[in-house]
Every structure is written in C-alpha cells, then in structure tokens.
Design a binder for these strands. Sequence first.
DNA 1: CAGGTATATACCTAATTCGGCATATACAAG
DNA 2: CTTGTATATGCCGAATTAGGTATATACCTG
Lengths: 131, 131
Amino acid sequence: MDMTLVQIYQCLCDQTRLRILNLLGEGPLCVCHLQEILGEPQVKVSKHLAYLRARGLAVARRQANWMVYSLPARTSGELKANLACLQDCAREDPVFRADSARLNTLTRRLAQRGPICCAPAALKARRALST
Amino acid sequence: MDMTLVQIYQCLCDQTRLRILNLLGEGPLCVCHLQEILGEPQVKVSKHLAYLRARGLAVARRQANWMVYSLPARTSGELKANLACLQDCAREDPVFRADSARLNTLTRRLAQRGPICCAPAALKARRALST
DNA sequence: CAGGTATATACCTAATTCGGCATATACAAG
DNA sequence: CTTGTATATGCCGAATTAGGTATATACCTG
C-alpha cells in the first residue's frame, strides 16, 4: 500500500505499461481486449499486468474464463496525481489516442451484444458471428 | 527536444535522479553542492547528471572550475506537468524534504559570503575558513 | 609551466529488465 | 473426464542499468 515515488515511476517507465494504464483509466478491461487493442502478444500483456498488479497499480478479478483488470479503487495521493498526469499527457500523444480510439470502437461493438467484458453469453455470440 | 512520455518516466525512475531533480527545481546548483546535499559519491552524482543532461532534463553551464546544473528554461508540456507533479509529491516525502532542508541551510550559509554557487571569491573565502 | 580542484568518462561487474518459448493453471462446455 | 479457451508462470538469453575504480579533462593559481 505504501509505494515510494520511485516505485511509481518504475511502473511508468515502460511503454506497454503506460498504454495499459491509459486504457484502464477509461474502465476495466479483460486481458484479451487489452491484447487486441495493444496488438501485443498475450504473454507480454499478461506479464506487464502481473507487474502492475504486484505493485498495486492494477487489481484483477476473475470472471469465468477471463481476468478483468482495473485500476485500484483507492490509491495514494502520489499515485493518483501521477496517473492523472499520465492521462493528461496521453491525450496529446498519437499512440495513446489511437489506443483509446480502438477501445471506443471495441466498446461500441460489444455494447450491441452484452456487457463490455466477455460474459458467457457474449462468448457464444462472438463465436457464432466469427464462423 | 521531443521526448516521449516513456523517456520522461525513464529519467524519473531512479531515486538519485529524483532527488537531483527535486533540488534543481528550487534553483541552479553546482555538482559539489549536489554531492554534499545528497551525500553521494562524486562519480554517481556526475553520471546521473550526465544522464539527465543527455535527455534534456538538465542543462549545464561552466562557471570557472564548477559546473552549474539547472532545469532547462523551456520544456515540453509533458515534462513540465510531470516535474510539477514530482515537486508536489516530493513535498510529502521525508527524503526529499530533508534534501530541501539541507539545501536551505547551504543556501543561507553561502548567502553570507557570496553567490550561491562557487564564484572564485567564494572559493578563497571557503578555503580561508576551512583551514 | 606545475600543482590543485572540480567534474567527466572509460571500463568492468553485478544486478535487473524485457521479451520470447514452452508449459502450467483455471474455468467452461460437453 | 476430455477438450478448448483464457491467462499465468518458469526458464532462458539479450540488452540495459547502476555503481565502483581508475583515469582523463578542464580550469584556476601561482
């Protein structure tokens, strides 16, 4: 619960982690969606999520087969300030903006047939559509 | 001049660099004073300064024997935001507060006999006093 | 020029980090 | 219990990093 400033910055000094945090700032996401939006291999995404989770920058809950990650509900002042700063800066950066745009598309697409993240019903629907 | 967000955070993810940036946030400082305040060996301080300088987070000017480091006059919005955030957070942290306190002491001590950083006159004065 | 002081750099090493491959675990469906 | 899907982890190698020692450079003074 008590992170030093350096530890916060150590979490922020990797591009993939920044992109993940930017996306989680807009709401909870499961790993497969992060993977899809980031265009990065599963193992890479999963490891960075584990890194963030181990340091309290992300929390995970299981939902059936899927792991849904989100930012922790309550965070220290330092962390909150830095995440806010990140969100601000990300708004100006093409990479982060593109990620957010992809997230929006995905969210809208999923809204047509269920909850944002992978309920069993959504799975069947997706399977039916993709074949 | 164009730093990505990650590059900024990479500069911030080392404790010594954070302490240096916190001190430079209060004004220019020469290496020997940084060394004294931080209580770190010369080579360590010097290397981190070189690191920051190479990435545009610090600028150096020579003043006789001494190198005076400071934050760059104009910086990108992202950098400015993050440095401001750092200053805010540092105000709550005992390590950074102690550094700032030592800086204050040093500044007051130097104010009695010249400019903050090591003018030739100050050198002679110091030499005279320390023997 | 010589000697001294302040700072930077070359070089080495230990430690850490990141990414990938392969494999393990957790759950759901049949 | 088997199969398939989603996610996590163990292990490895390449790259980077941080710190130290020794040395170089830059400047001042005499």
